[in-house]
């Protein structure tokens, strides 16, 4: 990754939201923001597919793809 490539592919609006959210966390008590975060994360986990075979299969495929991409990047 070099700076110009990375800059081109990044979604600036999403990064701006991250900055906005950090400012929110810095200003507000965790009583307020961590309640929102907990609701988001707990809902994600509660609705997650807990199928072991499928989970490990996806992980294995993702690992292979990531390795291939890294090798290609190194080759260039």
């Amino acid at each position: 990754m070099n700076s110009s490539n990375a800059k081109n592919k990044l979604d600036k609006q999403r990064l701006d939201f991250v900055r906005f959210w950090v400012e929110y966390i810095r200003k507000m008590s965790s009583d307020i923001w961590s309640k929102q975060q907990k609701e988001l994360i707990d809902a994600m986990i509660k609705s997650a597919n807990q199928n072991l075979k499928e989970y490990l299969r996806v992980k294995m495929i993702a690992k292979k793809i990531a390795k291939k991409l890294r090798d290609e990047k190194r080759a260039h």
Binding site: S29, S30, D31, S34, K35, Q37, K38, I41, D42, I45, K46
Partner: peptide, 9 residues
């Protein structure tokens, strides 16, 4: 760190 609401994670 004081984190009022801890998630499942």
């Amino acid at each position: 760190y004081s984190k009022k609401h801890l998630s499942i994670l």
